[in-house]
């Protein structure tokens, strides 16, 4: 019980620090941290798929970018009134659910040994279709130039937006944590481990994968929407495979299948990225931060396959195992 109390105490301290923080830092840093809060949700949504269900989705950016574009287009066309904003949110969610159902219908058809590869290729194709569509309908999206837009008044205050982003992260973390600890979430982990056996326990694997995809899509699209409120800008990079790979990188660095790993990973990647960009004054090479991420990616995969949070849980799990072998119903190291 005392361990639990310590845990809650540290959550409380962290929360207070995060609440005070925006008043103590510069505009740039505040912007960066707000970004981290929102992108972390995108990372967690990816972890639901790859980390918890074992699905490789190479078109995941379509959900995130879709959320951003829908917000931007609606604000541009219909203005920023409350009713227009609510309509925009509803549209972003509807888009996520419909695209996820259609994508999953094709991607999860192949249950055999080639299923993972087929799923990767099909989701890649869907992602590219969405990106291409956005590039084609220039009158709505401004194509490659990017779409700049105004946001509703309540989101215009910079410090206020920081708090909205923080609230979004907290709420989404709690919701997604609840999801992975639900009966459905437990089945997803079984599917990740051994899809065939899940089927022989009587689980409708395809239905559960669709549920995972719809959930991840809703989270990613919501994150994209929040991203629109924060940056007031959308371009087709948000829909690109590169953006999907960003989410993959967040989860790999932080720890796959740990949920919180995505938060740590996002923070790490974003902080390093902004630091490298600052160094570009010293040498041009630092502007090419993708090169460094390639290197980080390789190093993490080689030397820290569990990611930061994964490694931490492994150590914690071993300690607990030595101290006591008491009943623990969850996944080892969970």
């Amino acid at each position: 019980m005392t361990a639990k109390r310590w845990l809650w105490a540290s959550y409380a301290v962290a929360l207070i620090l995060l609440l005070v923080l925006p008043h103590a830092i510069g505009v740039m840093t505040r912007e960066l941290i707000g970004r981290i809060f929102i992108l972390a949700v995108f990372g967690m949504s990816y972890d639901i798929l790859r980390g918890y269900t074992g699905i490789i989705n190479l078109g995941h950016a379509a959900f995130f970018g879709g959320g951003t574009y829908i917000a931007g287009i609606m604000f541009t066309r219909l203005g920023t009134s409350a009713s227009a904003s609510l309509l925009a949110v509803a549209l972003a969610w509807a888009f996520a659910v419909i695209l996820a159902l259609v994508m999953g219908q094709f991607a999860f058809r192949n249950t055999g040994a080639g299923g993972v590869l087929a799923c990767a290729m099909i989701t890649l194709a869907f992602g590219e279709i969405v990106r291409h569509t956005a590039e084609t309908f220039r009158q709505f999206t401004q194509g490659a130039d990017g779409l700049t837009f105004a946001v509703p008044v309540i989101f215009r205050d910079r410090i206020g937006m920081y708090y909205y982003a923080l609230l979004f992260l907290v709420v989404m973390t709690l919701l997604l944590r609840q999801f992975i600890n639900s009966p459905a979430g437990r089945v997803l982990q079984a599917i990740r481990d051994n899809e065939q056996r899940a089927r022989f326990l009587g689980y409708d694997v395809r239905k559960y994968k669709l549920l995972a995809l719809v959930t991840a899509a809703l989270a990613a699209s919501s994150a994209g929407f929040m991203f629109a409120l924060l940056t007031r800008f959308a371009n087709t990079d948000l829909l690109s495979v590169q953006n999907t790979l960003n989410a993959l990188l967040f989860t790999i660095v932080g720890g796959t299948g740990t949920l919180y790993g995505a938060i740590v990973g996002t923070a790490f990647v974003q902080l390093v990225q902004s630091y490298l960009l600052e160094l570009r004054g010293i040498h041009e090479i630092f502007a090419r931060w993708q090169i460094f991420f390639g290197a980080i990616y390789v190093l993490v995969v080689l030397y820290m396959p569990l990611g930061m949070v994964g490694a931490f849980l492994r150590i914690k799990g071993s300690l607990a195992y030595w101290r006591t072998s008491g009943g623990n119903h969850t996944r080892a190291g969970d």
Partner: peptide, 17 residues
């Protein structure tokens, strides 16, 4: 997980196991 299937608990995505 076997029992969860046998008892037809269903998805219950927002209920703890």
């Amino acid at each position: 997980l076997v029992l969860q299937s046998r008892e037809r608990v269903g998805c219950r995505p927002l209920t703890s196991y």
